[in-house]
Design a protein around this nucleic acid. Structure first.
Lengths: 333, 333
DNA sequence: TCCTCCTACGTCAACGTTGACGTAACCGAG
DNA sequence: CTCGGTTACGTCAACGTTGACGTAGGAGGA
């Protein structure tokens, strides 16, 4: 900047004025400064600028999800990024791997870089680190899972209601033995979906068979094992409700291996690519991922812009997409 | 920091020493400062620090891909992020949408934040903005597509050779009418894969039927149209080589709609989730995405650490994954 | 003519941090 | 007891930028 000022024969302050399109610079001077900046390849230093400016904005937000390579997470990231770009804001992204210390470290890293706000998919269990950061005044929005502390916005989907609807659909087809396969019980979404499952059973007048409930299935491999065990029961389930992405995939593999994919009904929570191309197509509860991302972005930017209205818990509705696997009736045998 | 110093009754310099674990602070003072920092909720300001420090590092790199919600891009991002985290480096991520002005703007944004380096999936066509940034001294690694200018590292896969091998495999099964369906011709990868297709035909002694070559299919919808037209030809192809992810999906849809999925052979470039669960399983050329990401990260961090050896073009081998659709022999009729 | 107001600049200090350097106290060796 | 060296601090300025304020010159009105 000093070099630009010297070359244009003005003060650095005037260069600043030109770069930021502030008034108080004559047209001739503006041109001289612009030319000098071009020839020197000058790039303003936003970090120095935000250090000095009164608003202290870094024009950067943090996004802290579980696994950026997961389709759900990356779709969410993309939605947030699109909204951010409209305001000239960039996104610092990190994967917490559902690990508390990782989440904590990443949060500190973001804090050290003075991000204007963070969008977090909270790790299950306690949220001490999140609350601490929130209490320091960092605008924060939780996605997918609500905060266990107050004063923070959050965006989730209709986990419980949609799970209940899925179970009710299966029950209405005549299924009486509906299994539940869920992810880690520490995750709020898992709990909600399980509660929805229970509500569905109750509303349909079905009794819970505890041996048909399998939880803590983190990843497709564990889900495969659980599905195998369920189908090996003396009285196996005639329908499966799989409460997460990868769990659905694991269950599908087992059904296909046993050629049961047309005999055992399956509804999964979370859509995934190509679910419609399988034989049969997989019926799923589809979350409105871009909708969730947009809402989260909208909330975080409102808070950054000083919105002090009471915290919001936005719920973005999910819907059942019928593709075949969830419309299978119980086998005669 | 001043507040911490005041509370601990030391100078800010001593606080700095304690925070950075530098020698020159007595154990008692260290404890006082740590306690003061804790009670005040002090967080170091990395931007101010990097402004003043001699090395000028922001401990942040930029990642500029085409679409972060694309599985290929997000897997790559994840691999880079994992490597970055090991060095305490965070990732600023952006989607260029294959648009020159977007890429340019994001690049300027990254530059303004003084990232230590950038990993870029270059937009097709000219690379003026990239070269300009590179010439300013920003360490840069291109992934998936090589630079059109010199002096820059890059990581790609065996686009040409693997495409040739795919075509040779189809030819060896007796296919003589093998169609090519490709993405935008401005993309280097498309060109390479097309060249591999031509090499494969030539090596197998097959003549090129130009009406079987369809390019500029950006997205599954365009691919569907093209596949439909190909199958409507008087002498339709008995095998398809689809040179990109979404193109493969589009072609698959058409084959299934016409119940030809067991009669027309299909090999796709790029793997995708659940390709093994379809009927038949889809034979693909699988890139080693984590390998590419790791290599790109390794290169960028080496450059950031001052490696001045000649630029490298790393080629990470892809391999054919046989799942059924690429092993179909030509129909009798 | 003189005073006021506005425009187009410049000067200075400060944002939070650290490199360079200074200094006082203490330690061990000769 | 002195002297060189080490340890444990402190002081000062600077990184690149901008808010606050100062000033010179010209335009315009009484």
């Amino acid at each position: 900047m000093r070099d630009v000022a010297a070359l244009a024969k003005v003060s650095t302050k005037t260069v600043s004025r030109v770069i930021n399109d502030l008034p108080g610079a004559g047209p001739e001077v503006v041109e001289r400064v612009r030319a000098a900046a071009r020839t020197l390849g000058y790039r303003p230093n936003l970090t120095a600028s935000s250090l000095r400016r009164s608003d202290r904005r870094s024009a950067t937000i943090g996004v802290l999800f579980e696994d950026l390579s997961n389709p759900f997470d990356s779709a969410l990231l993309r939605a947030v990024e699109d909204r951010a770009r409209q305001g000239g804001v960039l996104v610092l992204a990190g994967s917490s791997e559902d690990d508390h210390s990782m989440q904590r470290e990443l949060l500190l890293s973001l804090s050290a870089r003075r991000v204007d706000g963070v969008v977090v998919m909270a790790v299950g269990g306690h949220q001490d680190a999140l609350q601490q950061e929130r209490d320091r005044g960092t605008p924060m929005v939780l996605v997918d899972r609500p905060p266990t502390f107050g004063g923070t916005d959050c965006v989730t989907t209709t986990n419980r209601d949609s799970s209940r609807d899925a179970v009710l659909q299966l029950a209405s087809l005549g299924h009486r033995d509906i299994a539940f396969l869920g992810d880690r019980r520490t995750l709020w979404t898992s709990q909600e979906r399980y509660t929805g499952y229970l509500e569905g059973l109750a509303q349909a007048g079905l009794t819970l068979r505890e041996e048909l409930v399998r939880t803590d299935l983190h990843g497709a491999d564990l889900a495969e094992v659980a599905a195998t065990e369920l189908l090996d029961l003396a009285k196996p389930p005639t329908a499966l409700f799989t409460a997460q992405n990868l769990v659905t995939v694991g269950a599908m593999r087992v059904l296909r291996a046993r050629r049961l994919q047309h005999r055992v009904a399956l509804i999964g929570f979370d859509d995934f690519p190509l679910a419609d191309m399988l034989e049969p197509g997989i019926t799923v509860v589809r979350q409105d991922v871009p909708g969730i991302g947009r809402k989260a972005a909208e909330l975080i930017f409102a808070r950054i812009d000083g919105d002090t209205s009471p915290p919001v818990h936005a719920v973005v509705p999910a819907s059942i997409v019928r593709r075949g696997s969830g419309e299978i009736t119980p086998s005669a045998d």
